[in-house]
Computed example of a mutant assay.
Amino acid sequence: MRRFLRENALTLFFLGILVLALIGQAFSGWSLYNDEQLAQAGAEVSLWRYLTSSSFAVDVAENWQSEYLQFFLYIFVTVWLVQRGSPESKEPGEEGLESDRAQKVGPHAADDSPRWAPIKGLRGALFSRSLGLAMGGIFLLSWLAQSLAGRAAYNAEQLASYQDPLSWTGYVTSADFWNRTTQNWQSEFLAVASMAALSIYLRQRGSPESKPVGAPDEATGIEG
């Protein structure tokens, strides 16, 4: 067990604080939701009812979709675009998919390579892009969940105000949906741009996201 915890500590740490953050969001969101209910002469709801409501679901989904969009774009864009001096980038001149030899695929696969690495054709092509496709798929599913939960929450407010509800297509083209979406996207894009640029000049000793402390600023694609 100790070995398992040590070898998976990074994933387990972030899953742990994810749970803590969700618990914090659940209780703070529940309190805020009930305050709004009382302000509108409505009835308070239980914690369980709030957790199964569209209001909670849309708040979670809109954050998840923006995070997975960030990773999806970053994985694919870094194939073709570089940032000189950033450990997050390949060296200038190495843009592209790289050779089979460099990627250890097909006849260049090693004995310990994943079993799909030597395979050519559709399976090999899918496996060689599986990380980005997985992130893109989770993004689309999260975005769909946001649209469905957001529509339900929006229509509940519309009906409470004696206004007509919107269809799904009407909601995904509405200002409410795109306001929720873009306010998350801009923060993710800023964070990625900041990481790529600041890591040129700043260091974090011992982190694989940083260059070695003594590495020159123009050094690209090396990790500490």
Rank of each mutant, 00 (worst) to 15 (best):
M135F: 12
A134R: 15
A117E: 14
W116V: 07
R101L: 10
A134H: 13
K104M: 02
V105Y: 09
K104N: 06
F127Q: 07
L140A: 15
S99R: 08
D111Q: 06
H108I: 00
W116M: 11
S99N: 11
A109D: 07
Q103N: 15
Q103T: 10
A134F: 15
G136L: 08
H108C: 03
R115M: 07
P118I: 11
L126I: 15
G106Q: 05
K120D: 13
G136M: 09
I119E: 10
G121W: 10
Q103M: 12
A134D: 08
P114S: 02
A117D: 15
K104E: 00
R123F: 09
R115E: 03
L140M: 13
R129T: 07
F127C: 00
R101N: 11
L122E: 00
V105L: 12
S130M: 11
A102W: 00
A134K: 13
V105W: 10
G124D: 05
A110G: 13
R123P: 05
L140Q: 05
A110R: 15
H108G: 02
V105I: 15
G106R: 01
S128Q: 07
R115P: 02
D100K: 11
F127G: 00
L122T: 08
K104Y: 01
L126D: 01
V105C: 04
G106H: 04
L131P: 01
I138A: 03
P118E: 07
S113K: 04
L140S: 04
G132C: 05
V105F: 08
K120M: 04
R129K: 12
A134N: 13
G121N: 12
I119A: 12
P118W: 08
G132P: 06
F139L: 05
I119V: 15
A125V: 04
A134L: 15
L131F: 14
L126Y: 10
R129D: 02
I138E: 00
S130L: 10
R129C: 00
A110T: 13
D111G: 09
A102D: 11
A102V: 05
G132T: 03
S113A: 14
K104H: 12
S113E: 07
M135E: 00
P118R: 03
R115W: 14
P107C: 03
A110D: 14
R123N: 10
A117W: 12
G121A: 09
K120C: 01
P118F: 11
A110W: 01
A125K: 14
F139N: 01
P118M: 11
K120W: 03
F127Y: 14
A117R: 14
G137H: 05
A102C: 00
F127W: 14
G136N: 09
A110Y: 03
L122W: 10
A134C: 12
D100F: 05
L131K: 14
G137M: 11
A117K: 15
I138Y: 05
M135G: 00
I119L: 15
R115I: 08
G136D: 06
L131H: 13
A117N: 13
R101I: 01
D111L: 08
S99Y: 09
R123V: 15
S113W: 04
R115K: 06
F139R: 00
R101A: 14
L140K: 06
G136Y: 03
F127E: 03
S128D: 08
D100S: 11
G136E: 05
G132N: 03
A109E: 04
F127T: 01
R115S: 02
K120Y: 02
P114M: 02
G137S: 15
R129N: 13
R101E: 15
